[in-house]
């Protein structure tokens, strides 16, 4: 479904060229929940943002359903973006619009009629489980509710792919679990392909079918999550798995103490 070929991107920071992506090759199949993990600055955010061209790559191809999206003109890109939605760490909702209006936004810009918008918004709010909040403004919602609104908004135009940019990193563990369950359910019921980046191992563990590990702008290992996690090769993944285990041991200790 998504095939990334030799993708390169560099930035000029204070006159110094920094390579964020050093030739990424990656295949993501339809229906996968694909996790990209890595430390801060590994390039995972840049990679994800290339998938809907919020970042323009310097070199390489991104083939989505047979078409190279880096060659799209403005109009094609806007149409493509209606098929590939994104949710964010800080939700990025319209603060002066209520929940209903936030979810209606992508439908309005797609030029749908009022009746359809009304029906679809209610449908979406039901899917994400906040149908009683339609008149609330984002400032009155909890983090989890805000992310639900953002997910409803992202789903409005029936996208095939959902990009998650650290979507649970600002949420508490319980809310994180609920949002992940929702994403997994959407993956199962709608056949939504999900690409997510995170530095939280639990997120990957919980919902990803496949995983890629990034270090300094390169993918150092990738594959089916269970296999990759069983025999981690990269330093990053070994460290991440260790710290995850560390937490488990700590909890055991606490339980024994009680």
């Amino acid at each position: 479904m998504i095939e990334i070929k030799d993708l390169k991107k560099s930035y000029l920071i204070n006159g110094n060229k920094t390579e964020a992506l050093k030739g990424i090759n990656l295949k993501i199949e339809k229906g996968q929940v694909f996790g990209i993990i890595g430390k801060s600055g590994a390039g995972k955010s840049t990679l994800l943002r290339c998938l809907n061209l919020l970042e323009t790559p310097d070199e390489g191809e991104i083939i989505v359903e047979g078409r190279d999206i880096t060659k799209f003109n403005k109009r094609e890109l806007r149409e493509y973006r209606k098929n590939v939605s994104m949710i964010f760490q800080h939700f990025n909702l319209l603060s002066n619009s209520n929940v209903y209006k936030n979810v209606a936004f992508p439908l309005e810009i797609a030029g749908h009629k009022r009746d359809y918008i009304d029906k679809r918004v209610r449908e979406l709010l039901k899917i994400v489980g906040i149908e009683d909040k339609e008149k609330e403004y984002p400032s009155n919602l909890s983090g989890g509710q805000k992310q639900r609104v953002a997910i409803a908004r992202a789903l409005a135009n029936n996208p095939k792919i959902l990009l998650c940019d650290e979507a649970t990193s600002a949420l508490d563990p319980l809310t994180t679990k609920q949002i992940l369950d929702l994403l997994l359910e959407l993956n199962k019921t709608l056949g939504l392909t999900i690409v997510l980046i995170t530095h939280e191992m639990d997120v990957v563990d919980r919902i990803c079918s496949n995983v890629a590990v990034m270090e300094k702008g390169e993918i150092v290992e990738e594959g089916i999550k269970d296999e990759v996690f069983k025999s981690p090769k990269s330093k990053t993944l070994r460290q991440f798995l260790q710290s995850q285990k560390g937490e488990v041991i700590y909890l055991d200790f606490k339980e024994r103490a009680i």
Binding site: K82, P106, A110, R153
Partner: peptide, 8 residues
Amino acid sequence: EAAVSLGA
């Protein structure tokens, strides 16, 4: 950015 990502 969110609006851009939604195709606005």
